[in-house]
Amino acid sequence: MAMLEVKNLSISFGGLHAVDDFSVTIEKGELYGLIGPNGAGKTTVFNLLTGVYKPTEGKISLDGKDITGKNTIEINRAGIARTFQNIRLFKNMPVLDNVKTGFHNRYRYSTVSGILRLPRYRQVENTLNERAMEILKVFDLDKEAAILAGNLPYGKQRKLEIARALATEPRLLLLDEPAAGMNPNETGELMETIRFVRDHFDMTILLIEHDMRLVAGICEKLSVLNFGRLLAQGETAEVLSNPDVITAYLGE
């Protein structure tokens, strides 16, 4: 069964069809790319998938379960986590706590046991510290665990956002322009990390990206959006050589 199945997804803001009749099927373990020119509706698709917007039409199912119309929190619990185009970290909290906050729904204890420091608090906090450090190590952030997230350099902030998303233990990870603002070296490193995350965490990943080197380098399949509509879909090499796609990107 497909990990993510989107059928005829549409949303209009007034008269504007931001996403129109978008369908996609992503299998478990796939690294899938969503590309398209600026304003094509890519981020809107992410916002629809994560419940920020409710679709006017269409159906979204995750691992066979219908999640259409659910809110952000329910969808995260169901197993979709995301990062943002403009980084959204908890800037005034240490790097470690950013990841620990990601575990909010996975490792729980009550407010009262937190205040009274009951045994349950110590036990869960110890597990949390260990698990958070494991994830930070994957992203080579473990040495910065005590630093405030806002004080990290840009590239590491992007990585921390992915780390925090992974802490919610999702089945599907959505990355919104993970390489934005990175230099070629950092992008190369990021590609390695994304591949590693897929293999190590057994993750299905859908990503939006403008950096064609990254897209061609790691995505197995692609969907191309243009003016909210699906322009092409399929194997990466095939899609990238499609004349329609080239026209959309480079003009006539």
Binding site: T72, R88, F90, N92, T101, R164, A167
Partner: peptide
Amino acid sequence: ACRDNRIAAESIG
């Protein structure tokens, strides 16, 4: 987390 970034807090449930 809700103070620092409401949208991100919702996105992690």
